[in-house]
């Protein structure tokens, strides 16, 4: 009975005394532990946040590298025309500065590294343009869309020739000098014709968007959109011309100048290749020269031995492309 009394009274009393103390102690210890945990959690949280930031950056870099890898693989898969050496280059900037009036991009190669004036610039999608001005290790590329850009082209299916001319930023390309009776279809690919050797033959350039005929003109009005995404260029391929065989004679080419470039004014008349003739082509005069152009040799001839025996040919006068 005393045991029961002791249990019910004394123990409860002790319990009543101890419990608040224990509760208080537990609370203090718990609070302290929580505080300590909180400090640890905060530190851990900060560490985890840092880790998340680092990993996010790594993921970002990795995804960027993966995208770059895909682009570079696509570029590598592009088989350059025979004899033309591909050289990769990065696009450093687009139009830069107040004097960048033309549609252009700046690339990370110059004439010391294979980007002489006139060098064709392509991506795995299609032609981008050609080198306009070149410094030792940096060059400016004149894009297809510039109104001063001229390029001799052929349609892929019907083999209709024309001159592809830019119409300005974000604009379509106009294929000029396509006769009224020539066949060309919407959706047809447009390829470089390889005339004059400025571009290799058969590189895709654009896709025909519209064809219309006018009663007032001798030619059809053909518009095409460039295949290469010229607004988002990051890496490009330069097609370095094949070296001239010793003893092989070459046709005279328009003179190129590292400071003046090959741009407007040094171009070619209609049907004479891929020059970037100036507005209206009034200054388009083929340069008569018996010296082989140092940085603009013609593509390697298929039979150089035969060519060496042939007399040097005079440059063809400007003429409209024939059917």
């Amino acid at each position: 009975m005393l045991d029961r009394l002791a249990e019910h009274a004394g123990l409860e009393f002790v319990g009543a005394i101890l419990k608040p103390g224990v509760w208080a102690r537990d609370q203090v210890v718990s609070s302290w532990n929580n505080y300590l945990d909180l400090v640890g959690v905060r530190e851990e949280n900060e560490a985890l946040h840092e880790q998340v930031r680092t990993l996010s950056q790594q993921v970002q870099v990795a995804s960027e590298e993966r995208a770059e890898l895909a682009r570079l693989r696509a570029l590598l898969e592009l088989e350059p025309p025979e004899g033309w050496r591909p050289l990769g280059a990065r696009v450093v900037a687009n139009r830069l500065g107040p004097q960048a009036a033309l549609e252009s991009a700046i690339i990370s190669r110059g004439y010391y590294s294979g980007a002489g004036p006139g060098t064709p610039v392509v991506t795995h999608e299609g032609v981008v343009g050609r080198v306009y001005r070149a410094g030792p290790y940096t060059a400016t590329v004149l894009l297809l869309t510039d109104p001063g850009s001229r390029m001799a082209v052929l349609s892929a299916v019907n083999r209709t020739a024309g001159i592809l001319v830019g119409t300005g930023p974000r604009g379509l390309l106009e294929m000029k000098y396509v006769p009224q009776n020539a066949r060309i279809e919407v959706g047809e690919l447009v390829l470089t014709s390889g005339l004059e050797g400025a571009f290799p033959k058969g590189v895709p350039v654009a896709r025909v968007e519209s064809v219309s005929q006018s009663d007032l003109s001798l030619f059809q009005t053909v518009y095409a959109s460039p295949l290469a995404d010229l607004e988002a260029l990051e890496e490009v391929l330069l097609l370095e011309r094949p070296p001239v065989q010793p003893g092989a004679r070459t046709l005279p080419l328009p003179a190129v100048n590292a400071t003046q470039g090959v741009g407007p004014g040094t171009g070619h008349g209609p049907g004479q290749g891929n020059g970037t003739a100036g507005h209206g082509g009034q200054r388009a005069q083929p340069v008569q020269s018996n010296q082989p152009a140092p940085r603009a040799p013609r593509p390697q001839p298929a039979q150089p031995a035969q060519q060496t025996q042939q007399p040097q040919q005079a440059p063809q006068p400007a003429q409209a492309p024939r059917q």
């Binding site: 107040p98 009036a101 033309l102 109104p147 407007p264 100036g278 009034q282």
Partner: peptide
Amino acid sequence: CHFLFTLMMASLQQLDIPQDRLLLE
């Protein structure tokens, strides 16, 4: 002057540049 000079120099060099963009710039 930026508009006038660029237009003038482009004309002298027989270049065709988009005037609306030049005006905006």
